[in-house]
Design a protein around this nucleic acid. Structure first.
Lengths: 200, 200
DNA sequence: GAGTATCTGAACGACACGTACACTATAGCA
DNA sequence: TGCTATAGTGTACGTGTCGTTCAGATACTC
């Protein structure tokens, strides 16, 4: 994530203004909601936050970096961390929470952020480490418990399984060929766990 | 896809120049390879193709549209259409072909095109209908054969299965957290078909 | 030759980019 | 109180791309 939240204590010089930092993030989040990433330019953020452009450039390397920080600032939701004793139920909760979050405006913005990340390495890195990875880690715990309980094969490739679960969700988010429905989430988890082969 | 390839016979007026059309696509494809989508601006295409900007705007609505047409023009590969009599083998061939194509420069460009599609509806539509859908249709045939042969459950949700196979591939293409290796492709198909539940 | 559509070249205003400059503001420290 | 260092301001600048306009040249059909 870009830009420390505050200047560490003990440093000399004028400390960073928390008020200014928040004004920038709020303005950027507002603009994201209203006009998407296209309308969220450094200039428009500066104008809306009543802040100098230079101040933004001082703390963030790119438009995408401000945007992702603003996104986290506004949409940071608690990550679902269920433990019902049943792998399928736990994973279903997590995928359901993900698709639910992506059905609204937050999903459109996330899609645009992923898009922008293809030409903004700093944004891409923040997306991986600040958004995707934490969610993968939580799901890893759930999967590991399933293995320990003997519900899943002991030799499961966890990385691949995470891709099998989250991949289709982000695929639909970005391609928009089919809706991110609850049914999709449930069926995805069920299919991934059980496979599609006919009983022999 | 944008822009008819040639003016239909019998029409009055000066016919569209095929030479100009090809010069634009070649120039755009060159620029895509050299500097990615960022460097592929309408102005740079026009300069390289020695063509007027206005001519490009006449036939394509956006930068993304020219780029995707240039991509198709250069990278259009025959879609794998195997029929070995074994679903897993056939699907594996297709996914292998996809990841192989995406490992090179063509993959980086495709990722950028998908990124751009998030803010360019015309590009998004062309991507869906001109790239993704044909590949999904071919895989649908393979899956249907598997159902008919009794290898797959009769009640398989084909749309979901397509997402389960292609989703993780595009997810890795775009997020770049793990490589698009052949092993990934094989394991993905195997896991999707068999599931990850422990034998009971 | 008349009619029509394509292509060209040049120019335009608008916008966002990223940077530079001189300036003011706010803190710690002596 | 004054010194020093950093944060933030306001303005302006050159650059690049956008999408459009216009007049004119070009190439085809009838």
């Amino acid at each position: 994530m870009s830009g420390p939240s505050t200047t560490e204590a003990g440093k000399v010089g004028r400390p960073r203004s928390e008020k200014t930092r928040l004004a920038i993030l709020e303005a950027a989040a507002d603009l994201l909601e209203e006009g998407g990433l296209a309308g969220t330019t450094i200039e428009s953020i500066a104008a809306r936050a009543e802040v100098s452009k230079v101040t933004i450039y001082k703390w963030w390397p790119s438009r995408g970096s401000v945007a992702i920080d603003a996104y986290f600032h506004r949409y940071r939701q608690t990550i679902a961390f269920p433990d019902t004793g049943d792998v399928r139920e736990d994973l279903t909760s997590q995928i359901l929470a993900t698709v639910a979050a992506f059905r609204g405006r937050a999903g459109e913005i996330m899609a645009e952020l992923i898009g922008r990340a293809q030409s903004d390495p700093a944004l891409a890195e923040t997306l991986r480490t600040g958004w995707l990875q934490p969610r993968r880690e939580v799901s890893t715990t759930v999967i590991q418990r399933g293995i320990d309980r003997g519900e899943l094969r002991a030799d499961v490739n966890i990385t691949l399984l995470l891709d099998a679960l989250y991949g289709p969700v982000y695929y639909r988010l970005v391609v928009r060929h089919e809706p991110l429905s609850d049914e999709f989430a449930r069926e995805l988890v069920a299919t991934t766990l059980n496979g599609v082969r006919a009983a022999s």
